[in-house]
Structure formats: structure tokens, C-alpha cells
Amino acid sequence: MKVLVIIPCYNEEKTILQTVEKIKGTNYDYIVINDGSKDNSLKILEANKINHLNLPNNIGIGGAVQTGYKYAYKNNYDIAVQFDGDGQHNEKYIKNIIKSIEQEEANMVIGSRFVWEESDFKSTKLRRIGITILSKLLKILTKYTIKDMTSGFRAVDRSIIEIFQKDYPDEFPEPVTNLSLAKRGFKIKEIPVKMQYRKHGKSSINSIKSAYYMFNVILLFLIISFSKGDD
């Protein structure tokens, strides 16, 4: 099966080259989406002849990742893997993540920080509580269990690539797509991964904004789950 690794990149001049080298080592096809970076990311991509798409505006992580899905759809990839450009994700897990899709046991597989008890990923307490609340809410609304609701390390099959290239949320894409795919009855699996603390750059969710983030996501969750059909 044809596998594409989608790497969104926004101001990642310090880590992007390293990330791409890691992916090159796995022999999977990849595409870097430069989301209107203000630093030297684009220059680095061009100088090193890295396969990339360049978005002339900054359109946010959701739009950037969706561009990757559009590219995957156009070029007939069977599996797409999201992989962060900031060095947080470990390429060794890609093989595990796509295995269940190759064997057609799942439509989407999420690399999760929380299915392992001994997971050493220390996120902030507030963030952890937030993710737990989202997980509980998903369970109530759809009966699905997804522990790591905000993980951006995930793989999807062709049927979901087709959905995502057409319709992908700009805001809070991971939790929102988890909910809408669960609502439609897709098979979703979680497998354990370890993630590194980001060395450079800021998470798109910092601790001050966490409460605001949570409020918005919960609101969006309720709106999506109580509006019938047309999603």
C-alpha cells in the first residue's frame, strides 16, 4: 500500500530538517506543508530539495494538514500519516501505527500517549485534565473510547483521506474529527507511543489558553453531536 507521511511546518527552522531526515530513513513517501512560515523554514526546504508544498498564507494547522490530505488524495495514496515537524513524534512508531490499517482492522489509528500506564510523557496537569474530560465526553456521546484526544500522530485509510480532503475542521481538528468519525461509525484504534517534549517552538496550546481551548472544544462537541445528519 502507498503510504504518505504528512508533515505540517510552521516556523520550524530548527527542527524541520532533522524531522525530514528521520522520515527519509523510513523510506515512506512524505510531504512537508509549509504553512506560511515567517522564519527560514521555506529556504531550508528549498535548499535541501525536500518534497514540500508552500502555502502562501498562514492558514493554521487544520488547513495545512488538510492540504496534505488533498495531496494524498490526488496522488492516490492508500494511507496518510500525520507527523509533527517539531520533533515531538518518533518515526519508529509509524510502522506500528499503519499496521492495523494495512490489515484492515481499523480506518484510523491514533498514536496515544496515555494507553500505556508507564508513559513518560509529562504534559501539564491542566492539559491532562482537559484531555480526560474530552475523552469522557466522547464516551458519553458516542460510546467510543479514545484516551489521547489531542494526539496529532495518527494514520488514516483511503476512505477517511477522501473525507478529510473535502472537509477538515480549521479549529481543534484532532478532537473534532475524532468525534465526527466516531459518530459515523468508523473503526478507530489507539496504540501506545512515546513522545518527546518539544525542544523548540511553542505548542499551539499553551497553558494559559488551555481553559479557553477546552471551553471552545466542549461547545463545539455539543453542537456537533446534537446536530443531526448533515456533517
Partner: peptide, 17 residues
């Protein structure tokens, strides 16, 4: 309009490629 701009931006990137 944001949605439309996002779409256009994506199409430009894909076309250039």
C-alpha cells in the same frame, strides 16, 4: 470568507507543486 481563503491558499500550493 476565511473558509474560501483557506481553500484558495491550498489550491495555489497544490497547483504550484
Amino acid at each position: 470568507q476565511n473558509k474560501k481563503i483557506t481553500n484558495l491558499t491550498q489550491e495555489i500550493a497544490l497547483l504550484k507543486k
